[in-house]
Computed example of a mutant assay.
Amino acid sequence: MLTATTPDWSELQPGFDDPVHDAQGVFRAVLDALARPGQLRSVGHRLAASSEASLAARATLLALTDASTCVWLQSPLAGVASALRFHTGAPLLSGEADLASTQGAQLVQFALITDPARCPAFDHFALGTAESPEHSTTLIVDVPTLNEGHIGNDGLHLRLRGPGIATHADVTVGGLTTAFWQARAALAPRFPAGLDLLIAAGDSVLGLPRTTHVEVC
């Protein structure tokens, strides 16, 4: 039977200084980002810097998860895992083997991708069903750069359309290939099943619900 790892309580480390208010602030920022795709939202400087993942990615996980939500970490990040256990008690899975099993994929409600170039195929995650589209994985994808508008050559220029966007919104996202966005687009026929994405860099988060159409410009 697949089981999530059991924490070593002696090694737990805190994340938020003010867990209740910090989590509430991040939660509001993430919800606003999902409601307004294309508009970056700051989660605030609520965590110390870490080489494991961006502030936004770590804060988002801390704000959205609890003891009933299973989290999959692409890499076994000791600091991230410790903070999650300290604040949320969330059961953790890590590595391709856990995700590759049907049981593992269905368990995972949030996944942290810290090496986007090696992101697992989307069908390795729970996509939900037409009857229960909410039973899907939310991917938190950590990228090196993220900007509103089409800025410079450091990343792909994307044009977004869909609910929450008046006409279109332009963003520039580094670290993700055209193939990544093509694979996401291939999920469209499965709607209302699919995956919601939260793209994180620095203290900023970009919400991309499955209803958002993404065009690589």
Rank of each mutant, 00 (worst) to 15 (best):
E134I: 03
G164R: 03
E134C: 06
H124F: 08
H135Q: 15
T138W: 12
I140W: 05
N147M: 14
L139H: 10
T145C: 10
A121T: 11
L160V: 09
H124Q: 15
D154H: 13
L158D: 08
Q106H: 12
P144T: 10
D142Y: 08
F122T: 09
N153K: 14
A105D: 03
L156N: 08
I140Y: 09
P116A: 09
V141Q: 10
A111N: 00
A105F: 01
T114E: 02
Q106V: 05
L107F: 10
D123N: 12
H157T: 12
H135Y: 13
S132M: 14
P120L: 01
H150N: 13
N147Q: 15
R118F: 06
S136W: 08
F110A: 04
A121Q: 13
F110L: 11
R161A: 12
I140L: 14
L139S: 09
H157A: 14
V141E: 03
L127W: 01
D115Y: 03
L112T: 01
G155S: 10
F110D: 01
L156W: 07
F110T: 00
G149E: 11
H135W: 14
G164F: 08
S132N: 14
E134Q: 14
T145R: 11
A117D: 13
L160N: 03
C119N: 07
A130R: 11
D154R: 12
I165F: 08
E148W: 00
F125Y: 08
L158E: 09
R159V: 13
T137G: 08
S132H: 15
S132D: 15
Q109C: 10
L112G: 04
G128Q: 02
I140A: 08
I151T: 15
I165V: 12
D115F: 00
G155H: 04
V108D: 02
H124C: 14
A126K: 00
C119D: 07
G128V: 02
P133A: 04
A121D: 15
R161S: 14
I151G: 10
G104V: 05
I113Q: 04
Q106Y: 09
R161V: 09
A111K: 00
V143R: 07
L146Q: 07
P133F: 06
R161H: 09
P144H: 07
E131S: 10
T129F: 05
L160Q: 04
A130M: 13
D115Q: 15
I151S: 12
S132C: 10
L156A: 04
C119Q: 11
R118L: 11
H150Q: 14
S136M: 06
G128W: 01
I113K: 04
D154K: 11
A117N: 06
S136N: 13
E134K: 00
Q109S: 13
